[in-house]
Design a binder for these strands. Structure first.
Lengths: 212, 212
DNA sequence: TAGATTGTTAATCGATTAACAATC
DNA sequence: TAGATTGTTAATCGATTAACAATC
C-alpha cells in the first residue's frame, strides 16, 4: 500500500513514527480505542496538523468525524517501520555496552540475536541466554554461512571501521553503530548511529544555554 | 562572546557541533593544524556553506584566505558546548545499561559521577571504581546534601517518571534519559533522551525502504 | 441531520545552499 | 600582489502550520 508511494518520505517524519507508536501503545494499555489528532497532539507535544500530515504520507488511516482507531493505527505504524518482519542480528563487541544492547534485544520481538563476537578471551565462551560469545576470528566464516540482516557494532573506536567492513562484505543490510566515530559504509548498507557523546554534549549545551 | 548573541541558535546547528568537534579531534590526532570549510565538508559530508553558517552563529573563528586553525576551532566548539565546565552527575539504575553508561562516563572529563543508586539488593553495595552503589531510598537525601547538575535515568520504564520527579525536585539542571518513555519535566530542566528503540526502528524502516 | 474531525491544499516559516564582496 | 577562503547576504528549498472543504 504505502510501498509504492512516489515520493520519498522525509527523515524528520520517519523519526517521529516511533514516538507515535509509543504513544499509541500507551493509549492501548490504558484501554483507549479511539484517538483524534488533536488529543494525540496534546500527548506528544506535536501539532495536530503535523500528525495528520505525517500519517498521510503513508495512507489515510483515520475517519472523518471520528479520528483514528488506536489498535489499527498502532499496527499500521509498526508495519510502516517494518516491525512485522524478522531480522537476523549479529553483535560484535560484548563489553558493558554490548552486554546492555544484547540484553535490551532479548525482549524485542522480530530482532533475533543469532551470534555474539568479541576478542577478549575472558568474554569468549561466556553465555547470554543460550548464545555463546564466539571468538571474533570466526566472524567472517559466520557471515558466509548465515544470512545476517543487521550488524551491531559495540566495539571500541579503533576496530569499529574494520568490523563494519567485515559486516558489509558479509552482506548485512544495516549497521547499528555504537562506536564513537563516523563509519564509512557502502551505499547499499543503511547506517544508524547511537552516539552517546553527541547526546551528552547536546545536553551540556542546553544546560548552559537554557531558553536561549 | 557567543553568550550574548541575540538570536537563539537552532537545534539542528547544535546537534552538528559534536560532529564538528569529533572531526577536528581526528584532524588534530593526524597532526593537521589548518582546515578549510571545503575540506571539512569533504570529511563530514556536510556542505562548506553550512559549516561556515553554523560556526558563524557563534563567532568568526576563521581567517579569509587561510581557513580555520584546527586546535583553536576544536577548543571553541568545546567551549560552546560547555565542555570546559564541570558537571556533577548522579546515575539511577545500575542494570546492564546503567553499568554501560557509568563505565562510559569514567573517561569523560568534566562529567563527574558522584553517586549511583539502584533498588536491586544484589547490586547495592557493589562498587565501580570507587563509587559504591547505594540504596535508591537514599536518593532524596543525597540530592538535598549535594549540588547535582545532571541526573541519568537508566531504570526501567515503570519507575522512570518518579525518579525523574525526584531528580528535578532535587535541583538537577538536566536529565539524560535512557528509559523508553517521554518524561515530563519542569520547564527549567533540560531533557535529553537516548531512545534505543526509536533508533532501531528507524534502522528497520530504512532497511526496508532503502533509497526510497 | 448536526457536529466532529479527517485529508489535503495553501500559506508561512525556517533551514540549507548559492553567490560574492571583504580580506587575509 | 594574486589567490584563497572566509563571513554574510540573498535565493532556494523543504518542513511546519493554518485553513477548510470533504465526509463520516
Amino acid at each position: 500500500m504505502y510501498s509504492k508511494e512516489k515520493q520519498r518520505v522525509s527523515p524528520s517524519v520517519i523519526r517521529r513514527l516511533p514516538k507515535y507508536r509509543r504513544s499509541l501503545l500507551e493509549l492501548q494499555s490504558r484501554g483507549i480505542s479511539r484517538i483524534s489528532s488533536k488529543e494525540l497532539s496534546r500527548i506528544t507535544g506535536l501539532t495536530a496538523s503535523q500528525i495528520r500530515q505525517d500519517l498521510n504520507n503513508f495512507g489515510g488511516f483515520g475517519q472523518q468525524g471520528y479520528g483514528y482507531n488506536v489498535e489499527e493505527l498502532f499496527k499500521e505504524v509498526g508495519g510502516i517501520l517494518g516491525l512485522d518482519k524478522e531480522y537476523n542480528v549479529v553483535l560484535v563487541g560484548f563489553g558493558n555496552l554490548g552486554q546492555a544492547v544484547a540484553n535490551y534485544l532479548q525482549n524485542k520481538i522480530g530482532f533475533n540475536l543469532s551470534a555474539i563476537f568479541d576478542i577478549n578471551p575472558n568474554l569468549i565462551g561466556t553465555e547470554l541466554r543460550g548464545i555463546t560469545v564466539q571468538n571474533f576470528s570466526g566472524l567472517n566464516q559466520f557471515m558466509r554461512e548465515n544470512k545476517v540482516d543487521i550488524g551491531i557494532i559495540a566495539t571500541d573506536k579503533s576496530s569499529a571501521q574494520s568490523v563494519s567492513n567485515m559486516l558489509c562484505a558479509g552482506g548485512v543490510k544495516g549497521i547499528w553503530n555504537f562506536a564513537p566515530l563516523d563509519l564509512i559504509v557502502p551505499y547499499s548498507v543503511v547506517l544508524e548511529n547511537v552516539h552517546l557523546s553527541d547526546s551528552l554534549y547536546t545536553l551540556a549545551y542546553y544546560i548552559n544555554n537554557h531558553g536561549k
